[in-house]
Design a binder for these strands. Structure first.
Lengths: 341, 341
DNA sequence: CTGAAAGCGCTAACAT
DNA sequence: ATGTTAGCGCTTTCAG
C-alpha cells in the first residue's frame, strides 16, 4: 500500500495537520519541523492522493474535453490534434484531460457527459461545432466552458478561435499574386462560422483587388467538408465554369478531393489549375503535388484552450476571453503562376 | 451546488445508507423505498460523485496511458490512434483515460508519472517501446500493467500484440505472388520486437518459396523508422543492389521515404519497383501511387488494451494474458507484377 | 508554532 | 428492511 499522510505524520512525529501545512508551505510551520516532515516524505516516497485532496478542495484537477463523435473519428486528425495539444499543455499545468464524444445523431434524451454528472472535471473545453441543444444542457450546469474553433454568439464564453478571415484572405491573395483572376471557392456548411469567415476572407481579397466575386464560382452544396464532397464539388464546378484557373477549398480534406478529381480528368496541378487548402493536415505533404495550404496551429489551439481554462479556474470573477490564433501560408507545389492568356 | 447523497436521503425520508444501497441495487431494500429513492434522485438530478466514491472504494475509474514523447509527437499518428482507440473503448467500460508522455531523453532522476504517484489511476497501459529503467520504476509500484505493441520478456504482463510475423509474411507473399524474386527489406531498430518479427516473416516467406535470403537486401542502419531514414535507406539499397524489383519497408513512414527517393530518381512505382509498407497510416492513401501496405487495426489495439485492463482490474488473481491482433493486406497501387526478364 | 477535530461525499460493517 | 457509524486521505478552522 502507498503511504498516507498518517504514515508521514507518525514518522516525523507530528500531527497530520502539520504535515499538510508543511506540504503547502504554510508560514506558521517552523523551518525545523518542516525539514523533518520533508525528510519523512522523501523516505516514504509519499505523494498526496489526488482523489482525497479533490474531495475536500472540490477540485478534481481534471478538465473535460468534448468533441462530436464525427469530429473524433474523421480521417483527418484535425480535432484530435487539438485534443492532443490540450493534453500536452495540461501536463504543464498539472491537469489531466478527460475526453468524451457526443454521439451522432444525438439521442432524443440528451445525457450529460459522465464526467460532468459525476463532478469529475473542473471545467470543460468544447472543440468544434456541437449541437445547440446539447450546449444548452451543458450551460445549465454552470461549469466553466472554453470553446475552441467555435463560438457561441448567445452566451459569451471564453474561446480560442482561428483567424479564418485572414487565412482565407491570405490564401486568395497568394493566388492573386500568382496572377490568377478567376478564383473559385469550395465550401461546406455555410452556417459554420469558420467556413463563413474563410469565405469572407476570400471575398474581401477579391474585392480589394477589384476582381469579380461571382456566384458561379462558389460551390457549397454539401454540408460536410469531406474528401468525397470535395471531389463532387470539383466536378460540379468544372461542369459549370471552365475558365477557373485557381481553387480555394475551405479545408484540406476537400482540397484533396478536388485534387483527385482534377487528376482523374487529366488536369495538371498547378499548370492548368492552382489549388490551395486550409488546415495543413498531415496528408497535405504526402500528395503529389504537395498541397499549398493555410496552416492552422492545431496543437497551439488546444494548448491555448487549456491556458485559458487555467486562468478561468483560478480567477474568482467570471471572465470571457477570446484569443485568436494566427494562421500561416504554407507555400507548396499545388499553386503556381497563372497562364497568361 | 450539486445535490449530494444527503439531499437525496432527506428528500426521500430515508438514511444515506439506504440511498447508497438502493443505488447499488441491494436486495435488502424494499421495492417501495427503492422507488422512493429513485424518484428523489431523478427529481434532484443526483449523480454520485466519482472522487468521493473513489476515495472509499480505492478505485479511481481512471486508466493511465503511457507513451514516449517521441511516439506521441511523431507525424504519423500511429500511437496516438491507439490511444484514441483506448479512449473510445474506455467509454464503454466507464473508465477515463489519462495520458502522459515520457520525456526524451530520459532525465537521470526518473520521476513516476504524476497519475501513479497521486494514485489517480487503477492501472496503466504502456504503448510502444519505452526505456527499460523507466519500466523498472513502474513495475515497482505494483499497479496492473497492460502493454500494447511491445512486450517485456522478463516480467510477463498482459499485452496486446500485433501479428507482425504473419504481417511480414503476408506482405512478402503478396510480392512473391506478383512474380518478384528479388525482394529487399528496409528496417530500423532490429532490437525492437515488432521490427524483428516483421523481418522474420519476410525471411520465412522467402524461405518457403525457395527464394534467396541475401544480406545485401537488408538495410537497417538507421534506428528510427522515419520517412527521412526510409529515403536514406532506399538510396543505400539501390547503390548496393540494382536488381531489386520489390521492397518491403518495415513501416509506412519509411515506405513513403522510399517512394520519394524512387520518384526523384525517376524510378516508376510499381512498374520498375514494387513497394509495400506496414501500418496503414492515413497518408498511405494520399500518396501517388497509393501505398500497398499491411493494415494494423490501431483503434482495435487500443480498445483491446482497455478490455484486457478491465478484465485484469476485475479479477482477483493476477493474470497475464496475451492477445494477438491480426493484420490485413491493403492491396493498393504501389505493387504490381514483376517484369519478366 | 502545533494539534485536535470536523467534514468533503460516499460505502460498508454493524446494529436495530 | 433500514439506520447508525466508522472510516477512505486529505484540508482547514479553531484551540491551545
Amino acid at each position: 500500500m502507498h503511504p498516507t499522510i498518517k504514515d508521514v505524520a507518525k514518522r516525523a512525529n507530528v500531527s497530520i495537520a502539520t504535515v499538510s501545512l508543511a506540504i503547502h508551505g504554510n508560514k506558521r510551520i517552523s523551518e525545523e519541523t518542516k525539514q523533518k516532515v520533508m525528510r519523512a516524505i522523501k523516505e516514504l516516497k509519499y505523494h498526496p492522493s489526488r482523489p482525497a485532496r479533490g474531495l475536500v478542495s472540490q477540485k478534481t484537477g481534471n478538465i473535460g474535453f468534448i468533441l462530436t463523435e464525427n469530429h473524433f473519428l474523421r480521417s483527418e486528425p484535425f480535432y484530435t490534434q487539438i485534443f492532443l495539444g490540450a493534453e500536452l499543455e495540461a501536463h504543464n499545468h498539472d491537469y489531466y484531460v478527460l475526453l468524451t464524444t457526443i454521439p451522432e445523431p444525438l439521442p432524443k434524451k440528451i445525457k450529460l457527459p459522465r464526467f460532468v454528472a459525476e463532478r469529475n472535471v473542473d471545467g470543460i473545453v468544447i472543440a468544434g461545432k456541437i449541437p445547440e441543444n446539447y450546449l444548452k444542457h451543458l450551460e445549465d450546469e454552470d461549469i466553466p466552458i472554453v470553446f475552441v474553433d467555435y463560438s457561441n454568439e448567445e452566451h459569451d464564453c471564453s474561446a480560442v478561435l482561428i483567424d479564418n478571415f485572414n487565412g482565407g484572405k491570405t490564401a486568395v491573395e497568394h493566388l492573386i499574386g500568382l496572377g490568377h483572376k478567376n478564383i473559385a471557392f469550395i465550401g461546406g456548411d455555410m452556417n459554420h462560422p469558420s467556413i463563413q469567415n474563410r469565405f469572407n476572407g476570400y471575398k474581401s481579397a477579391l474585392e480589394q483587388h477589384q476582381l469579380p466575386v461571382s456566384a458561379k464560382n462558389f460551390i457549397y452544396d454539401e454540408v460536410n467538408t469531406t474528401r468525397e464532397n470535395g471531389y463532387i464539388a470539383a466536378k460540379k464546378l468544372l461542369a459549370r465554369n471552365k475558365s477557373v484557373t485557381a481553387i480555394f477549398a475551405c479545408n484540406d480534406a476537400m482540397a484533396i478531393g478536388v485534387m483527385q478529381y482534377l487528376q482523374e480528368k487529366g488536369i495538371s496541378i498547378p499548370d492548368q489549375i492552382s489549388l490551395i487548402g486550409f488546415d495543413d493536415v498531415e496528408a497535405a505533404t504526402m500528395t503529389t503535388p504537395t498541397l499549398t495550404t493555410i496552416a492552422v496551429p492545431k496543437f497551439e489551439l488546444g494548448g491555448e484552450a487549456i491556458r485559458l481554462m487555467d486562468i478561468t479556474l483560478n480567477s474568482s470573477t467570471i471572465i470571457s476571453n477570446k484569443v485568436v490564433v494566427g494562421v500561416e501560408l504554407k507555400n507548396r507545389n499545388s499553386t503556381g503562376a497563372a497562364k497568361s492568356c
